[in-house]
Amino acid sequence: MQKRAVVTVVGKDTVGIIARVTNVLADHSMNIHDISQTILQDYFTMMMIVEMADKNRLDDLLEAFETVEKDMNLTISIQLEDVFQAMHRI
């Protein structure tokens, strides 16, 4: 079953963040549905809604994100969309 997830990326702004992160997503065949990005006081924040094709590759994906986090000094998280729906919608 396909599931939507929310990816958030926060960290100090530098060249190539979107490129690195979206490359990882592409490598894991995850389609991006929505993307919004802004710079707040030198801090880069990006949120994406992605389609998770294969939940079983989550470990693999988290590992790939970890490398990007270390290389570019970012905090990346991925959470299934249901949790946001549950918390903020009745």
């Binding site: 926060v10 809604i49 959470q79 969309e81 946001f84 729906q85 918390m87 903020h88």
Partner: peptide
């Protein structure tokens, strides 16, 4: 229904901070 930007931020803040 799409989730708003600030709602995503709120959840992330709750977990991370």
């Amino acid at each position: 229904m799409t989730i708003a930007y600030n709602e995503i931020q709120e959840t992330i803040r709750m977990v991370q901070m």
